[in-house]
Computed example of a mutant assay.
Amino acid sequence: MTALGVLYPGHSAEDDYPRIEQLLGSDIRVELVHTDIGEDAHSVGALRQTGTPERLAAGLERLRLSGAEAVVWACAGEGFVHGWEGAQEQVRGLARTAGMPASSTSFAFVHAAQEIAAARVAVGATYPDDLAGLFAAFLRAGGLEVTGVHGSGTVTAAEAGTWGEAEVLALARAADDPGADAVLLPDTALHTAASLPALEKELGKPVLTAHQVTVWEALRLADRRVNAPALGALFTREPIVQV
């Protein structure tokens, strides 16, 4: 049994994680611990406060006691708003405090795109344009080419959490670019686990979403690979790179 630790802020789309655990169909356990979200706002200031060391410390202690082998901070925005270097320092701090390998959803997107050889990506974000642009800048710092960015302007995680499959598909279609190897949908407040097959069928290319890449990143840190076609191309391809 491999236990994966996920630190998740608030309560918007956490039901995606038990769904993913079920779809993995293997001896994988996803240990989900909630952290205090503070102010629910898609803004740089609010996001920076969401992931303060004090807010994360209690959750890390619970994950350590659960037997988790790796931990991923499942808040894409709170990672990329710090920039590449700042997000790296945050992850190093998580690893030191937790005593286990650590990463964040922001880095998970970069690693997952590299895994499927998607050098050119399009971004479909629920966020306002300024935050969507910061995510694109983070991806570029990770060596990816961003062909286009589409922001939807939601102002809270709670709002994004109400979106259904129709809204998610519309976001992906609006973001898609013929020159992109994959479409990326950040925001761990968005329900996407049940929609991955429909998304990839609709676009005819890999789609990477926040919960999907978060669990994949935790598996990578734990040195596990699981074939799970219902979770998209990321979970069906042979490894291309090891980061």
Rank of each mutant, 00 (worst) to 15 (best):
G38N: 11
P128C: 12
L196I: 15
N227R: 12
A172V: 04
L60Y: 03
G10D: 07
R48G: 02
A13F: 02
S195Q: 14
A182N: 05
R48F: 02
A102P: 04
W73T: 00
V6E: 02
V91T: 12
G38W: 09
T214Y: 09
E200I: 03
L7D: 06
D187Y: 06
R120Q: 11
D129G: 09
G204I: 07
D181C: 06
E217T: 01
E39L: 15
H42F: 15
A122V: 10
L234D: 02
A222S: 14
L144D: 04
L32H: 09
A113P: 06
T2V: 15
P128S: 13
L219K: 04
V71T: 07
A108W: 01
D130Q: 13
A189H: 03
V121Y: 04
G148C: 02
L60E: 03
A3K: 15
D36L: 14
A193F: 02
G5C: 13
L169R: 07
A170V: 10
T192I: 03
A172R: 02
L199Y: 07
A41G: 02
P206K: 01
G148D: 07
E78Y: 13
V121S: 03
L32R: 09
D129N: 13
G151F: 08
V146I: 10
R55Q: 12
A102E: 06
Q242G: 14
V243Q: 09
F135E: 03
A3Q: 13
T147P: 01
R140K: 15
L94K: 01
E14M: 10
K205P: 06
A180D: 08
L4F: 08
A210K: 06
V44R: 14
A166C: 11
G133C: 10
L185Q: 08
L63H: 07
A41M: 07
H211I: 05
F109C: 04
V121K: 03
A74I: 09
V226W: 00
W216V: 01
A218M: 06
G151Y: 08
L24M: 06
W84R: 15
G179Y: 05
S195M: 09
Q90H: 13
Q49C: 11
T147F: 04
L208N: 11
L169I: 11
F135Y: 14
L184D: 05
P53W: 01
V241E: 04
V168G: 11
A68W: 05
A194Y: 00
Q114N: 15
S104G: 14
L65D: 14
A108V: 04
A174D: 11
T105F: 08
A218T: 02
E21P: 05
N227V: 06
Q90F: 06
A189Y: 02
V168E: 09
A117F: 05
E21R: 08
E238P: 01
G148H: 07
L190G: 01
G164W: 09
L65S: 14
D176T: 13
A122H: 04
A118I: 06
G142N: 06
G77H: 05
G59N: 12
V207W: 00
A122P: 06
A180G: 10
V155M: 12
V110A: 15
I116F: 00
L196D: 00
W163A: 11
T209E: 02
P101E: 06
V72G: 05
A122T: 12
P18I: 10
